[in-house]
């Protein structure tokens, strides 16, 4: 356990002691800022609305742009950089298990992912301050939105860790995780464009549609099926990552 914590600490320190970490943070901040101005413009368009602020933010689609672009950047380093630098060898010859290593890499990127989304709270706070309406900042709503961010983060970080474990090139790793992440995202649209939802296939695609899941989360609806979906897919990708890291010792 102490070793895992040491690993997580070291992983997080590389985010915050290098330029890449701060560049990622500032670019995400820029995109969140853009979506915030967009949100303010829509709030000022005359008609009063009863749509929650978090949902209005989500409707601007910046959410997916940030998630799809940032997660490969956050995770591409995890294994690929170690392999390129050669430190992978010193790392796995230390008395730590491969599972510990995978989990440490996953959790540290997840923590960084959550840090990236912190400014969103501030945005909602600003709206609440100027709207003079307590209901515009509903704690439950913000909490469920962040639960969505956390669950999607789990999924995308595990995809990223898996992609990074496959290669020693960070660029290749980020491309693989971007492609996988994009594919997962686009699968959800198969239902949106289907003429009728009677087909069993459409039911399936609707079930895994992350756009619809997130739509629920920003409205404050938490469905245990969705929580289970994200956790199980995350575990699946972490399992694959573990197998890839372990494959070195196969004979």
């Amino acid at each position: 356990m102490a070793a895992t914590l040491a690993l997580i600490r070291r992983e997080l320190s590389t985010y915050f002691s290098s330029f890449t970490g701060y560049i990622t943070i500032s670019l995400v901040l820029f995109l969140v800022g853009l979506s915030f101005t967009d949100l303010l413009l829509r709030l000022n368009q005359g008609e009063p609305t009863d749509v929650p602020v978090t949902e209005m933010f989500y409707q601007s689609w910046y959410f997916w742009l940030i998630l799809l672009l940032a997660s490969p950047v956050v995770t591409m380093r995890t294994f690929a950089a170690e392999k390129a630098l050669g430190t992978f060898e010193t790392l796995v010859t230390a008395p730590i298990s491969d599972l510990q290593l995978v989990l440490a890499k996953f959790f540290s990127s997840l923590v960084f992912h959550l840090v990236l989304w912190l400014p969103l709270i501030l945005c909602v706070g600003v709206v609440r301050h100027f709207a003079n309406d307590r209901s515009s900042f509903d704690v439950g709503m913000v909490a469920s939105t962040y639960l969505g961010v956390l669950l999607l983060g789990c999924l995308y970080m595990s995809i990223g860790c898996f992609a990074s474990s496959l290669t020693r090139s960070q660029i290749v790793a980020s491309m693989i995780s971007f492609a996988l992440g994009m594919a997962m995202f686009l699968l959800g649209f198969k239902t949106a464009y289907a003429p009728q939802k009677t087909d069993r296939m459409d039911g399936f695609f609707s079930h895994i549609s992350m756009v619809e899941h997130m739509q629920d989360f920003v409205r404050g609806v938490v469905d245990s099926r969705q929580v289970f979906f994200y956790l199980s897919v995350t575990v699946f990708f972490l399992f694959l990552t573990h197998k890839v890291v372990e494959s070195r010792r196969w004979r």
Binding site: R10, S13, T14, S17, S18, L85, G86, T87, E89, T90, T93
Partner: peptide
């Protein structure tokens, strides 16, 4: 205690 060839280290630490 193992030191691999070319002595890989975390150069940012």
């Amino acid at each position: 205690g193992y030191m691999p060839e070319h002595n890989p280290l975390y150069i940012d630490m």
